[in-house]
Structure formats: structure tokens, C-alpha cells
Design a binder for these strands. Structure first.
Lengths: 123, 123
DNA sequence: ATCGTTTATCGTCGATAGACGATGATTTCA
DNA sequence: TGAAATCATCGTCTATCGACGATAAACGAT
């Protein structure tokens, strides 16, 4: 999955950001939810379900596909899109620990009163 | 949290997309991780930890603040930023069911061979 | 009162996102 | 073979992002 050359020099955070960015649009959220229900979905069905032009929907599908969240196969004159549930699960596995880390109390020793917390841990 | 007037006409997906978009940048991920460690962090520490101009970091902080993910308070000549762990937790609570839904097998009855799946469930 | 420090904001620039219509490619059906 | 349907891609337009330097604002220290 995701073997196009542009990914060669992508670090983990860039890939995560790419996928989050793919999620970060109401139309794409709607598309993903629709795919979650029907498993296989033709482009036209998605277009009819949204109030967007066909070309716009096609571009959203392309973004989702480039992020690896969906797969698209051509079937005759139409295209069949499917969720890539494996990639979604991988994203979840990456995202949940991160959100846990962010929501949890900070590690001991770097309390609020520390006048000199190391900021070098950033990069 | 997030009471600025622009939010008045925002639906749930737009708010979710706004927050995902705030997450979807490597620099902002790094900032959030740093804040997770130290709880209270001055802007200057974050700037020194990244290889970005101070003004750029300030803009990233603004994006995170507008998404409600962090809070910023002025303390004398400097600013103290904190994670809004409550909002992060709320985001996680919204995101996890969504990712579960996307990663899980589709609901029965809308199988692959159904020639006429309803697509109206989209909007 | 002035200077230095720290941070936010402004203005600018190039790049990208998001929308659309038009066009093209491909396949099915008559 | 020709016509219709379906979808991807192209070109265009506007708006926003992401980066920077320069500047302004706020405060502490001298």
C-alpha cells in the first residue's frame, strides 16, 4: 500500500498528516461513512448522495485514494470504490495512542513549576 | 470552548473536520506532543524546538487554538500555552467510533451483490 | 523613560485546496 | 456502427495555507 515514489521520503508524521488531511473534509467524511455501509459503491451513487458536481466528488475520491483510505477499481464503464479497512485500522492504531498521549496528564517531572523544561524533545 | 460567532452555523462534521485539519500538519503534531510532555510551555521554547520562524510557529499555535485543542494565556511579556486535554478527549470520543465504523465490516443486508443499495443515506 | 525581550499581527509570496464546466476515454446497449 | 452512460482528467477560478520578514504591542529591567 502506498508505494508511489513520492512516499519514499515521507516520514511517519507526514504520512499521518496526509491521512488526517484526507479525513478533514465534510464531504470526504460523508463519502467514507457511505462506503462503510455498503462496502462496494459506485461513483454515481456517491455523486447522487452529495450536492456536489461529479468532477468534485471524483477529486475527493482521488484524495481518499491517495491517502490509502479507499481503493478504486474500474468495472466496465463504472468505478467501484471500497474502503481500505486495513489502512483505516492502521490509522486508528496510530491515532489512538497519540490522542491518549495528548489527553493524559503530563509525565511526572515536567511539572508546571519547572522553570527549565527541555524543549529539545520537539524535533 | 469554541464560542466564537463563526461556530454558530457549524455542523458536527465541519467541527470535526476543522479539528482534524488542525491536527493534519507535522509541525502542529510536534507542537502538540511537546505540550503533552510539559503541560505549560512558552512560545519561545516551541520556536527553539522547531526549525521554523517565530511568526510561523505563532500561526500554527493560532490554528491549534482556534480548533480548541490548546489554550493560550498571556503571562506578562510571554505566552503560556497548554493542551486543552478536555477538547482532545472529546475529539477522541468522536473519532474512535468513526474509525471503528470505518474499520468494521459493513452492516448486513448491504452486501456486495446488492444491485440497488440506497445511496441516499449519504446526506 | 528607555531598552531589550517576547510574542502577535500584518503584508507578501508561492503553492495548494476546492469547486465547477468541458472534454475525453471506455464500455454497454440498441 | 452509433448513441448513451459513466467516470477521470484538464483547465480555470477563487480562497486558503504555509512560510517568511518586518513591525507593533506588552512587559520587565535598568
Amino acid at each position: 500500500m502506498a508505494m508511489n515514489p513520492a512516499d519514499a521520503t515521507i516520514d511517519a508524521d507526514e504520512l499521518l498528516a496526509l491521512r488526517l488531511r484526507a479525513l478533514a473534509h465534510p464531504a470526504r467524511l460523508a463519502i467514507l461513512r457511505a462506503l462503510a455501509q455498503t462496502e462496494r459503491c459506485q461513483c454515481g451513487q456517491i455523486v447522487r448522495g452529495l450536492t456536489l458536481a461529479q468532477s468534485t466528488v471524483s477529486q475527493h475520491l482521488k484524495v481518499l485514494k491517495e491517502a490509502g483510505l479507499i481503493t478504486g477499481t474500474i468495472e466496465g464503464p463504472r468505478s467501484c470504490y471500497c474502503l481500505d479497512r486495513e489502512t483505516v485500522a492502521m490509522l486508528a492504531d496510530e491515532l489512538l495512542p497519540l490522542l491518549d498521549l495528548l489527553a493524559a496528564a503530563p509525565a511526572q517531572g515536567s511539572g508546571a513549576d519547572n522553570p527549565d523544561p527541555r524543549a529539545d524533545a520537539l524535533v
